[in-house]
Write a protein that binds this DNA or RNA. Structure first.
Length: 561
RNA sequence: GCACCAGUAGCUCAAUGGAUAGAGCAAUGGCCUCCGGAGCCAUGUGAGGAAGUUCGACUCUUCUCUGGUGCACCA
């Protein structure tokens, strides 16, 4: 019905569609009407006081069948729609297959580079964020019809492997690595840094080993492959727990034979210069530190590999956009890489390469640090949450079937929701009691609301195909809930535009809270068949919407919990 | 030193430049003859500071304060 309001205003005020649609808004409170048209902006061109303009438009619109009441309140022209018609239109809109999805991205590809853990290091709370945010963006863009390539740009190449090889040879053993996996690699890595602090020669030795890797030294590569395999196996366990998959595990090593071409391009474009023995692209003109391309020993660095990756992805996937979900501390790095791509004559780079930064995770206020032991691993958090949910189930619903499966869905959902509920850029101070609290604005609350819907649909007898009498859905709580649900398509678009899953998470919460109020005020299982069918319809719509919204966050819904 | 990000209720956070700045947590008091109490209802406290742009600023600009992050051979 929004469209009809727009047209009424267009005719009455003699304005074009774009202007009207841009001004028309939904009032902050229900008692201010269903739509509002603030007339401030028109005052200048019409040279009239805003309230007078509002009154004028109201008079010109006059009596229309879809409008119950027009109210001029200050500069605002508030539209109160005929409730029954309004409810009907909202109901029909939401009651369609693929509600919330669109074809906006049809035929377009988006690459998302996310998760990308550093091989041979444990997967900790910080890595969870990129993984969860990236996965949600994948879901959101898919909902809008985009084809998405999920790329795990593993940190599986670089000097850290030189360090690991040195450490392995000095203080490690095959048996220990085989027995303890990544934990042992981690131990070796930490040990290396402790020793290197005392003996800088170790760093040179590590760089030398990495250079050997770059030159194809079999001994080095064999150890490297082994370490990568061990790490990947562990990461995949975590991804499985999270219910996430990737299309490509093309890590940094994938680009090792593609960096030479990048360097050649830079040379041809006359962008490369020597500085302190290394090769750089000077970016002073753009108020940025220089971008390091080649180390003084001739080996590549992550920027080089990132550049190679951009070229590869553009050629292979022909992306509309390539998103990089990493911590905000890497902002400068990506700004440099993107700028270099631009300087190489790739005009598309400016708009299609996007860094999606997120805030830093700290632990109980202190910085995360493997070396000081101030760290929590992703898997531990997930398992802890699952465990807590299981205890709650034992307490509240001991006869539930599939307890383990439900505990997993709810526990993992709690962690995901917690991570996605606030704007990405906010720093996160990890606190166990917050993460494991399932009351209020939490994932389990939304899932619980879904379960209530499911429970009602099981308990109540109704006719799925009955014509709904919208005149029976006029309770304030029912109308408010429908209004909330109707925001879904816009919410998905906003979330995509801002690269911000929290928009969807907030929406899911709003719907759930709205439903809870409805649930408390209006009984569904009533004698009157028509009323029952109407309310059941609303419950079913809520259920679907919650499921779809949570799905966009990578969260599943149990039917019971 | 330079750059970037964030400052909103005791805590954690919301709010396309618009109406009386909203939620949750914590606290207190209510609500099951009723579809699941992981719920609902009620009660209180407010924008780091200063200028500016605007009819209108939590939102935009500048300065400033506080906290965080980054600034060459790690990723």
């Amino acid at each position: 019905m929004k469209e009809q309001i727009i047209e009424l205003i267009m005719t009455a005020a003699k304005l074009d569609r774009e202007t009207v649609a841009g001004i028309l808004e939904i009032p902050p409170k229900a008692d201010m009407g269903d739509y509002a048209f603030p007339c401030f902006q028109l005052a200048k061109t019409l040279r009239k006081a805003p309230p007078a303009i509002a009154a004028d438009i109201a008079a010109k619109i006059g009596d229309v069948d879809i409008i119950d009441k027009l109210e001029v309140k200050g500069a605002y022209l508030n539209f109160f729609l005929k409730k029954e018609m309004f409810v009907k239109s909202m109901l029909e809109r939401a009651d369609t297959a693929n509600f919330g999805s669109s074809a906006a991205g049809k035929g377009k590809t988006i690459c998302i580079d996310y998760s990308s853990p550093n091989v041979a290091k444990n997967f900790h709370v910080g890595h969870l964020r990129t993984t969860i945010i990236g996965n949600s963006l994948y879901k959101i863009y898919s909902k809008l019809g985009y084809h998405v390539e999920r790329i795990n740009h593993l940190g599986d190449w670089g000097t850290q492997f030189g360090k690991l090889i040195v450490a392995y040879k000095a203080w490690g053993s095959r048996e220990a690595v085989e027995e303890n996996g990544v934990a042992e690699l981690m131990r070796l890595y930490v040990k290396f840094h402790e020793e290197a602090d005392k003996n800088d020669a170790l760093n040179d030795e590590a760089r030398a080993w990495f250079t050997k890797m770059e030159h194809g030294n079999e001994e080095a590569l064999e150890i490297w492959r082994w370490f990568v395999d061990i790490s990947l196996k562990e990461y995949k366990g975590t991804y499985e727990l999270l219910g996430m998959e990737f299309d490509h595990y093309t890590g940094e090593s994938f680009y090792r034979d593609k960096t030479a071409a990048v360097i050649e391009k830079l040379q041809n474009a006359n962008l490369l210069e020597e500085s302190e023995g290394a090769r750089i692209v000077d970016l002073e003109e753009y108020n940025m530190a220089p971008c390091l391309i080649m180390k003084k020993d001739g080996s590549s660095i992550y920027a080089t590999r990132d550049l190679a990756a951009v070229y590869y992805r553009k050629e292979t996937y022909d992306f509309e956009k390539c998103l990089y979900v990493t911590g905000q501390e890497q902002k400068l790095h990506f700004a440099q890489v993107f700028k270099v791509m631009e300087l190489l004559g790739n005009d598309w780079a400016k708009d299609s390469l996007v860094h999606i930064p997120y805030g830093l995770v700290s632990l109980e206020g202190a910085k995360l640090s493997t070396r000081s032991g101030n760290i929590i691993y992703a898997e531990d958090i997930l398992l802890e949450a699952i465990d807590k949910v299981k205890k709650t189930i034992e307490e509240k619903n001991p006869n539930l079937e599939d307890k383990d499966e439900v505990a997993k869905i709810v526990g993992v959902g709690a962690i995901l929701f917690h991570d996605l509920y606030n704007q990405r850029i906010k720093d996160v101070s990890f606190k166990w009691d917050k993460v494991l609290n399932f009351d209020g604005e939490t994932g389990p609350y939304v899932q619980y609301t879904y379960v209530r819907c499911a429970s009602i649909l099981r308990a109540v007898s109704y006719d799925e195909n009955a014509d709904i009498n919208c005149g029976l859905l006029l309770d304030d709580e029912a109308v408010a809930l429908l209004k909330e649900i109707n925001r879904f398509p816009q919410v998905v678009m906003d979330a995509a535009e801002k690269y911000e899953p929290s928009v969807v998470a907030r929406f899911a919460m709003d719907v759930a809270q709205s439903f809870s109020r409805f649930y408390n005020a209006c009984r569904v299982n009533v004698e009157d068949t028509d009323l029952r069918n109407a309310r059941v319809k609303l419950v079913a719509l809520t259920k679907n919407t919650l499921k779809d919204a949570l799905d966009l966050l990578g969260i599943q819904c149990p039917e019971q919990m």
